[in-house]
Amino acid sequence: MELVSSAENSSLDWRAQYSYIEDIGDGRGYTAGIIGFCSGTGDMLQVVRAYTRVRPRNRLARFIPALRRVDGADSHRGLGRPFVRAWRAAAHDRAFQRAQEHERDTGYFRPAVRLARSDGLGALGQFAYYDAAVVHGVNGMRAVRRRALTTAATPAAGGDETTYLDAFLDERVVEMQKEAAHENVDRVELAQRRFLREGNLGLVPPLRWSVYGDAYEILEAPQST
């Protein structure tokens, strides 16, 4: 979570990102929350729906019809500043935080880690799959994986883990550079590829990397929560 947050929010404190919301100009409308849920891709709608099931009278509930209408587009129609204010206010509610965490886990983290483990990958590979899912969606991550498989085999299929991950990251760079908003590949080359070249397939601290000109480090494994 800290590694992804360094690229998504320029901070290791991913728990401080529940209230984050802005349009980053990537054609996906608003980007918000702990992994960048988007109004144009449907996952933001899922977060608000989950929250509303627990808190029916919340301030975001009235925007559900607008979120349905802008799904698949970059439009702010029916959202705008009132929606932004409501999102930031809701971020203080633990129920809303749990809704974000649930969508992150069920829609991104668990599918990515499950696939990485089935491919025989350790912690670095699981991180690489998860980060790709966050940026490109799980289907996009799977597309990157399919292209990598044309040049290297997964460890589960008898391939070398380092060779396969190198191929996966090569294809990830190709995918990133398809969009102007994601053409900076620091999160791949200066973090994931750096760990790979260091031979740190298990992501064993200390970890040191940089993204977008900022340096980060994790000196010890965080305590489980």
Rank of each mutant, 00 (worst) to 15 (best):
D26P: 03
R104G: 02
A16K: 10
L149C: 13
F195P: 04
V84L: 15
L115A: 14
P206H: 04
G159K: 04
A167T: 02
L79D: 00
L207E: 04
R28N: 06
L60W: 03
W209H: 01
T162C: 15
F168Q: 02
Y130D: 07
D166K: 12
I21S: 02
R62N: 06
G29A: 13
L67R: 04
C38P: 02
F37G: 03
F83D: 02
R114D: 10
A152Q: 04
P111Q: 07
H136M: 14
V134K: 00
W14T: 05
L196G: 05
Y164R: 08
Y216W: 06
H76Q: 11
D186L: 09
I218D: 05
L219V: 07
E171K: 08
V54N: 13
D186C: 15
Y164F: 14
D26Q: 08
R172A: 08
R147H: 07
T41M: 13
V144M: 09
R114A: 13
L79H: 03
V134D: 06
P111L: 12
A191L: 11
F195Q: 04
T163P: 04
A99K: 02
A221G: 10
M1I: 07
Y18F: 13
D13Y: 09
S224R: 11
A91V: 01
T31S: 14
V113C: 15
Q177L: 13
G80P: 00
S224P: 02
H102T: 09
E2W: 07
Y18G: 08
A215C: 12
Q46A: 15
G42Y: 02
A191F: 04
L201C: 09
Q97H: 06
Y18M: 11
W87S: 07
G137Q: 04
A221T: 05
R69E: 06
A32V: 04
Q177N: 10
N9T: 03
A156G: 07
R114M: 11
A215Q: 09
P82W: 05
N58G: 12
E2L: 14
